[in-house]
Design a protein around this nucleic acid. Sequence first.
DNA 1: GGCCGTTAA
DNA 2: TAGTTTAACGGCC
Length: 415
Amino acid sequence: QDQNNVIQLNATKAGMEGLDVASINAIINETSKGSKFYEHKAKQRKEIERKIEEMKKKIGTYPEATVRLSEAEMTKYGEQLEISRNYSRFIVHIDMDAFYASVEMRDDPSLRDKPMAVGSNSMLSTSNYIARRFGVRAAMPGFIARKLCPQLIIVPCNFDKYKAVSRQVQNILKIYDPDFSSISLDEAYLDITNYVETSGKSPEEIVQEMRAKIFEETQLTASAGIASNGFLAKICGDICKPNNQHYLPKTKEDEAKFVKPLPIRKVNGIGGVTEQLLLGLDIHTCEDIWNKRGIINLAFRPITAQWLIRVSKGYQESWYGHDDDSGRKSISCERTLERGTTDVNYMLKIMEKLSEEVASELKSREMRCKSVAIKTKTVDFVLKTRSTSVTNFTSNGSEIFNAAKGLLLGYLQEE
DNA sequence: GGCCGTTAA
DNA sequence: TAGTTTAACGGCC
């Protein structure tokens, strides 16, 4: 019914359960129609549809025996997973509820009973739970949000404030796991196994205490999930939000029962495109992934297929993110210029500033770079990157700018 | 090594 | 009228 709407609201976020997505999509698309952004989305959509058809066609060419063999291979992979499965850790995913919005509501009580969001007319970072009932969410432009909710109050970002609160929260987290891994200002993974052992308290008690301390210190609520791995912990926290926690017992049976009915979109790493591809194979839940493992193994590359199998079993360890810069691979900054900017000298001026910013970030971390890349976006939202290696490692702003300038001029030269 | 697409917050 | 920013990863050539 909603299929002909080019732009689709992602309503998988906490607080958006049971929304009339079709009506919301109608408003979003009505507002967007005729814009370059809409045209771009339409193109993307077509491309995904093409991909789905291509994939289905490919699958159809495989003989039955091939599918059976492929399934047997994945079955074996699944069995090996079960053998190596590790139930020894207590992993916690903790996430501040509607973080930026909650900070603003805390500091201005008049906002507390009103739909509000943090960001600008062009882009929102977060919305409070009242606004979510209107379909207003993060990553939505403010002007679209106002169509969905005319009473919406939009508060500008106070980034430094959120950073300070984040530091307060992290100081609490490190009591429980000094090596916790922060994903962003409002989200972190902890391994509390050692703390469970040394304190003699239960994981649930510990997380209660952690959240209480956060509230005491910041007047803000957090939600948390506790499970045998980060993948499950994150979903546990997500489904019980806000101001709540969920513990998933560490048994094969409990985890299977939890993971099987999950819609694929709840999986970290499955976004809009992969969701469409999987739906094209009639895969809606994590259980479907396992049941269709033979086809998945034929439709995707081995790395992706195996990842999906691990997901379907609820056994996915890794998350990336860091509390220091040890694993960092790139540093960048970017700026969107006013629509229709054509003045090359102006672009170069901006690029020089960006180069200096990157250089100063590098210096402050005592790092140097070997590769310089630029990213461009045209008025019709076409993104391109151009990159080059520099001869010597550098953290010098003008050296970086020189490389970037060459790339930009080269790009503008292309026809 | 260079570029694209996907994802996430 | 208007649609961000930063970072990582896999696929492909």
